[in-house]
Each structure stands twice: as C-alpha cells, then as structure tokens.
Design a protein around this nucleic acid. Structure first.
Length: 221
DNA sequence: GACAAGATTGACT
DNA sequence: GTCAATCTTGTCC
C-alpha cells in the first residue's frame, strides 16, 4: 500500500543531521491516540538538538537513563519531563548510537479538536492548544510512557504522517533556539525552524512575544 | 545524601 | 514584562 511507501520516504526524511531534518519535518502531521480518539496536528515549529556536539542537548554528556532513547534509531519518539511539570517530545534522527533529535515545539491542530480542548482546559483559543512544546504533549496526550515509540509504525500510539499536502516550501523561517541559556547556544546557530506567519507558532518564538534581544529570524530560500 | 539547574507555562501587574 | 510553580535529573562531596 502507499502507506508503506510513505513510511519509507519518511524514514529517509528523518535520517541525518538534526539541523537538516528539522525543517523537513515542518508540514508533516503528528498524530496520537487510537482510531476514533485520534488527535493530530501539522508541525509548524521545531528545534534541532545535536546530542553530544551540542551543549544545550540532554545528550551532551553521554547516555543516561533519561536520554537513552535519543541514542536510538531514527524515527523514535524521545519524551522527557521539563521543569517537573511539562512533557516535551523529540523525534530521533541520527543513526543508532549517536544522539540527535528534533524538538516539536508547535502544531497547527487538525483532528480531534474536542479531545484537545478537553485536555487543554486552560487554552482560551484553539491557537493556544499546541503553541508550545509542553502544550503539544498535553493536547496529544503524550507523556513519558510514549518515550521510545516508533513514529513510523502505523500501529503506534504516536505516529508521524506525510500527507504531502502540507508543503511549507519558501515559508520556513530559521532562527536561534529559545529557552536555551545563551552560553549553551552554538555561535551563529539558526537551529529553530517555523512556518512564517503561522499563528500556532509558540509565543516565545514569535516576534511580538520576544522578551529579550535575539537575532532576527532568517527566511529560508 | 544534598543541592542546583532546567529544551515551560500561565497568572498577575 | 515579570515571576512563581514543581520535580526530575545530574553533579558534587
């Protein structure tokens, strides 16, 4: 079936340097939950983390019980608890044994909106449902139990889908990562990628929500 | 064993 | 724009 072909395409798309893979994930669909209760959204903001080459990455100091999944094969989901309150999900992309992943920061809600609203009671508007890494996991019902899930397996609890209708060519904006201490950022890095003008992009990444001076985002050619 | 830091969020001023 | 909440993880002694 074409589904198998698409997962082959996705596995190729997901393999490689996280900085190269991150913009390719924009426009793809992240879906979670069983059929009938599925929640899904189109990826509109991501950040690349280069493992042991990246001081800001959890994997910088090598594998631990928490980040073990990051050293797994491309296509696995790495979920961690942030600030003791929020889960954040990453998509592993470097080959097994080398840590590297792309953090999913924001989605444009597509399916299961009622389910998302019931999980995100504090969201006043639909654009607040998935406009941040912690919000994405809450809206999709992703927690630490989903760590290590194979996103390319159709039967998984969390899946990545390429419906080929989400092209973001020409509207990808690159910029420095947010929420990362300045001394941990790699000089000149533009490892955060978002869809230009999308209202679901997280507030800390939007121009109006910027609370401190940072480099201007650059539109990808 | 103790302590500090953190890939965030939301409420409040 | 500022700040508190909350708790896991990693480091140090």
């Amino acid at each position: 079936m074409s589904g198998q072909r698409s997962s082959v395409r996705l596995s190729e798309l997901l393999s490689g340097d996280p900085v190269d893979v991150a913009p390719r994930l924009l426009g793809k669909i992240l879906a979670a939950g069983p059929p009938g209760e599925e929640t899904s959204g189109r990826i509109v903001e991501v950040e690349a983390y280069r493992g042991e080459d990246d001081p800001a990455s959890h994997a910088f100091r090598g594998p631990t019980a928490r980040n073990r999944t990051m050293f797994g094969r491309p296509g696995l989901l790495y979920v961690y608890l942030s600030y003791g309150m929020h889960y954040c999900c990453n998509i592993v992309c470097w080959p097994e044994g080398r840590a590297g992943a792309v953090l999913v920061r924001a989605l444009r809600p597509l399916g299961g909106l009622e389910q998302m609203r019931s999980r995100r009671l504090r969201a006043r508007r639909d654009v607040d449902l998935c406009s941040g890494p912690g919000k994405v996991c809450q809206a999709l019902g992703i927690d630490r139990a989903a760590d290590g899930t194979d996103l390319l397996s159709p039967g998984s609890g969390v899946r990545l889908v390429d419906d080929r209708s989400g092209s973001v060519e020409g509207i990808v904006v690159a910029g420095p990562r947010v929420g990362v201490a300045a001394h941990l950022l790699t000089a000149g890095e533009l490892w955060r990628f978002s869809v230009r003008g999308d209202e679901n992009v997280s507030r800390s990444g939007s121009a109006s929500g910027a609370s401190s001076a940072r480099a201007d985002p650059v539109v990808q050619p």
